[in-house]
Structure formats: structure tokens, C-alpha cells
Amino acid sequence: MIEADVIIIGAGASGLMCAIEAGKRGRKVIVLDHANKAGKKILMSGGGRCNFTNYEVGPDNYISHNPHFCKSALSRYTQWDFLALVGRYRIPFHERDHGQLFCDESARDILNMLLSECDKARAVIQLNTSIGTIEQAIDKRFQLKTNKGNYICQSLVVATGGLSIPKMGATPLGYKIAQQFGIKVLPTRAGLVPFTLQPEDKAKFAVLSGVAVPCVISNKSRSFSENILFTHRGLSGPAVLQISSYWRPGEEIMINLLPGMDLDADLKSKRLQKIKSKLKTYLDGYLPKRLISSLFAEDVLELSLQDLSDKQIRQISEQIHSWAIKPNGTEGYRTAEVTCGGVDCNAISSKTMESNAVPGLYFIGEVLDVTGWLGGYNFQWAWSSAWCAGQYV
């Protein structure tokens, strides 16, 4: 039986961060992971550049059945705290749109930093280790049986992540552990994920694969101003990924393809000026030709601006500003960046990340019902929640 003060299941972003903080306190820490490498999702994130946090982080950037839960952790370990760590390692980074921060060179810089900090904290990382059973002994310590031997610890931290990108090793282990100990797990679904289209829409818009346009995309609860990207399967791009976390099956989404413009007023102005240009020529100045041809019949595009009726102008404007489309579904966990839902935050202390009902059992990162927007928010939740747990395990 191998003894430790703290065992952390999962050598991803939150697991490594928690190991660092617990180790700093002199706790004997072992991190167990079934993968052959630590931090696989860190390495693939942000196109290999790791969007490790954001300049502007707040509770409004997160989805949870308990919207107040994330406030404590985010305020106690902020993006500035993580940036201070990045600064100590002199990792070069840059800002992209909306405050998103990426490594200049490689996501490996962030992983190497975390692994170096784990070494300093004397946290042991053991890979290729599959968890068999977990039991709580009479003395309340946790006993784990694995393919690499048996372990016992005072504090057990579940940092197993969600179900997204199963080819990277995602499993439902964290949810199963919660359920084993009587902790509620809320229904999960893919988040930050591309949409698939209904068969007729897929056939109609297949020719647009590779076309990207800025827009405002919205449903009944949210709107985002970002690019959409047409793919051979449906719709992707930052705007679509953002709204997907708020979308429910059967719901329409609205897309404003020219958000900075009042098309109705502009077309009426052109008509008053008796401009003879064709609608096709006019719209070509604002949107890709292939997109215009997919949205409007050729006979409409051939109309002269001076000949447009009020009804036609209204219909054209609605099609551009309020294009309604009902996705067939999403691409699912295969390509989802995150998992919405998870371990019920009402069962967890927002201060310590410890289970309210099972002393010594902690949950951090994506396994919890806290889902961030696209843009570094999910990594910041990993750092913040893990830091908090690390002060108490």
C-alpha cells in the first residue's frame, strides 16, 4: 500500500495546478493518470499555442446551474496571478481578440512550467495508471486499487475533466466517482462545439465550405459578435462555438450578417437616389459572392436597386440581418472543446472545492458544472479551482 497525503486523479491543467499548491504546503502528493503523457489537452489547445487565460475574466463568462459558485475561486486566484507565474518563467505570449492570451511559441511552454513547479513541490506524477476501485476506510482515508498497485490517502482530488475529445483520453470516471459517493451529477452535453445542419440546409450551403464572415449570432438567451465559418458538415467558427453552449436541440439561431449596418435604410436611400446597380453588385460589396448566391434566388439578385419595392427591401433586410437557421444538432463530444454540466456545484464548497457530504473528497476543473466561454476562460477556471483546493487538501 503506497501512502500519500493527497492523491489527485488527472494530470491535466487543474490536476497539475492543485499538485503544485498542495506540494508547496509540504503535503505528499501523487498525481495518477491513465494517459501516457501529462497535459495532453494543454498541448493541443489553441492550435498548439494554448489560450491559457484572458485579460477580462468574470462570473458572467461561465455557465452553471449555480452561477454564484465560481465567484469565490475566480476572485482568489485571478488571471493576474497566473500571469505572474507565466512571467516568472519568461514565457512569451500575445493577446488576440477579446483579451485572449496565447503562447508566442508553443503550448509546451505552459506544460513545462507546470511540470517544473510540480518538481519543485515534490509532487509525483504517475502515468499509465488506471483506477480500479475507490473505497473509503473506517478512518475516512481513501483506498484506491490500480493497475500499478494500491494507494491510500487523506485527501482525494478528482481532476478528471469532462467527456470532450475522447481520442485524447476523456472518460466519465469523475462523474462515476461522484455518483459512487452519493454526489449529484447534472446532465452533460457537448459545449463549444460546431453545429451540423438539417439535410436540406447542408446541401444548400455545402458550396460555402471554407467561407468565414463576421456576424452577430444569437438565441433567446445570448448573443455573440464573432466570425462564423461554413464547413462541409455545417457551421463552425468562434461565434458558433460560443452560442453552442447555450443552444438546445430544436431551437433556432439568428444570424445578423451585417451587424454594423441598417440595410433597410440604406437600400431605401439608394432607391431614392435612383441608383441602377443590381442588388447582386450592391451586396457583393459587403458579403462573399458564394454566400449571397446561397441566400437569394438569381432573379432577386438581378433586380435594380431603384426598382425594389418596400416589401422586397424588407425581405432582403430580414434575410441578411435576421437569418434564422435551425441546426440539426452538434458534432458532439468528438470535437467539443468542453463539457457542459457535471458534478453539481451545490454539493461542493465554493471556498475549498471539497464535497459537503464526503470530507476529504474534492472536485476541480471541468468535471464540475462550470463551463467557460471560448477564450481562455476554461483554463482560468482550472487554475482558480485547483489553486483553491490546493490550499486545503
Rank of each mutant, 00 (worst) to 15 (best):
A239S: 07
A239P: 00
Q242C: 07
Q242A: 09
I243G: 00
S244D: 03
S244P: 08
S245C: 07
Y246R: 02
Y246V: 02
W247I: 02
W247G: 00
W247A: 01
W247K: 03
R248L: 11
P249G: 12
G250F: 08
E251D: 13
E251I: 04
E252W: 02
I253F: 05
M254T: 15
I255Y: 01
N256V: 09
N256I: 07
L257H: 08
L257W: 04
L257Q: 08
L257D: 03
L257I: 10
L258A: 11
L258E: 06
P259E: 12
P259L: 12
M261W: 11
D262C: 13
D262K: 13
D262S: 15
D262T: 13
L263H: 05
L263Q: 05
D264L: 14
D264K: 15
A265L: 12
D266V: 13
L267T: 00
L267R: 01
L267K: 00
K268H: 15
K268V: 01
K268R: 15
S269W: 10
S269V: 08
S269P: 01
K270S: 14
K270F: 14
K270R: 15
R271K: 15
L272I: 12
Q273M: 13
Q273C: 09
Q273T: 08
Q273H: 12
Q273L: 14
K274S: 14
I275Q: 14
I275F: 01
I275L: 12
K276W: 01
K278W: 03
L279Q: 07
L279S: 07
L279V: 14
K280L: 14
T281Y: 08
T281F: 09
T281K: 13
Y282W: 14
L283Q: 07
L283N: 07
D284K: 15
D284F: 13
G285L: 04
G285V: 03
G285R: 11
Y286R: 10
L287F: 04
L287G: 05
L287K: 02
L287N: 02
P288S: 08
P288L: 06
K289P: 09
L291S: 04
L291Y: 03
L291R: 02
S293G: 09
S293T: 10
S294I: 00
L295I: 05
L295P: 03
L295E: 02
L295A: 05
F296H: 05
A297K: 14
A297G: 04
